[in-house]
């Protein structure tokens, strides 16, 4: 038995060899210090900003009125204007109205998807008859790109808010349902056997065993659904709308106002990031026991 260096556990089959002369830490065991980690994290962002600024500068040397890559100052000015000044025609402050309307649509769309995922996911994962009836259907539906059936959505639900919310729900719910159902199936069989020997009814198993274990998984599924959720929100608003973040982006694209588009893109990125962090924080504080295994991104 050789001496254990660096806290590494002896590995079966190699302990008889001569000890290596050097004991370098493997790359996977070396972690950056806190400061270095922050620095490394900031690096790609800084590189992007530097590269953008350079490209923008070169283009504006050629044509001072270039709209494709506006300067950082004009992006900032556009953001400030949209966030503080009232629109002459509508009297509203554009950014906040757009943000409020978009977040309402996203929230409703994902909320409905969440309800479907919870109810159908548990039913499919827990009740074999329902699984047989719905699992193949949901699997098939989840493969339909929702945007392709948009004209049907319009005729059925009108051009208003309902069809936009439905598009977000259709785009996110099937995958959420499937991951919920899988999570229910993944609950160890022993738990089910045990609670049944303790005399639990089906309803009690759902509410006391399945549901509590589902909650953190549901939040994880919601976090993943935010990505397609935003995509479908923007697409829905591009098609027929009078307000919203996607509406504004597609509207000003008609005169290549990249200063407005880029400030909206940055704003959407910030909003999406905050939503994601909020959900992670909720999951960690309310369901801390499900975060005991390893780190989460």
């Amino acid at each position: 038995m050789s001496t254990i260096e660096n806290g590494a556990k002896p590995v079966a089959g190699v302990e008889h060899g001569p000890p290596p002369r050097h004991h370098p830490l493997r790359l996977i065991n070396r972690a950056p210090s806190r400061r270095l980690a922050v620095f490394l994290g900031a690096l790609p962002f800084v590189a992007l900003v530097v590269a953008y600024t350079a490209a923008s500068h070169v283009r504006r040397l050629d044509n001072p009125s270039d709209r494709l890559l506006p300067s950082l100052e004009s992006i900032g000015a556009a953001f400030f204007r949209l966030a503080t000044e009232r629109d002459v025609r509508t009297g509203d402050i554009t950014l906040w109205v757009d943000t409020f309307d978009s977040l309402t649509r996203l929230g409703l769309g994902l909320g409905v998807a969440l309800a479907f995922a919870l109810v159908l996911g548990i039913a499919i994962g827990f009740l074999p008859h329902i699984r047989s009836a719905l699992a193949p259907f949901i699997a098939a539906v989840s493969l339909i790109p929702p945007i392709t059936i948009l004209p049907i959505l319009f005729i059925a639900l009108g051009l208003g808010e309902t069809s936009k919310i439905a598009l977000i729900t259709l785009g996110t719910a099937p995958v959420m349902i499937r991951s919920m159902a899988q999570a229910v199936i993944d609950i160890p069989r022993e738990q089910m056997v045990k609670v049944q020997t303790l005399g639990a009814s089906t309803w009690q198993i759902v509410t006391r065993v399945v549901l509590p274990q589902m909650m953190p998984k549901l939040i994880a599924a919601l976090r993943l659904a935010l990505v397609p959720g935003w995509i479908f929100l923007i697409s829905a608003e591009a098609i027929a709308s009078t307000s919203g973040l996607g509406y504004r982006i597609f509207l000003v694209r008609r005169y290549l106002a990249m200063d407005v588009i880029l400030s909206y893109v940055i704003w959407i990125t910030i909003l999406a990031y905050l939503l994601d962090r909020l959900l992670l924080w909720w999951s960690r504080s309310a369901f801390w026991w499900s975060h005991l295994e390893g780190d989460s991104l």
Partner: peptide, 11 residues
Amino acid sequence: VNTSDADMVAA
């Protein structure tokens, strides 16, 4: 109401 030309007939 800003409506995409691609969806005008359906609308």
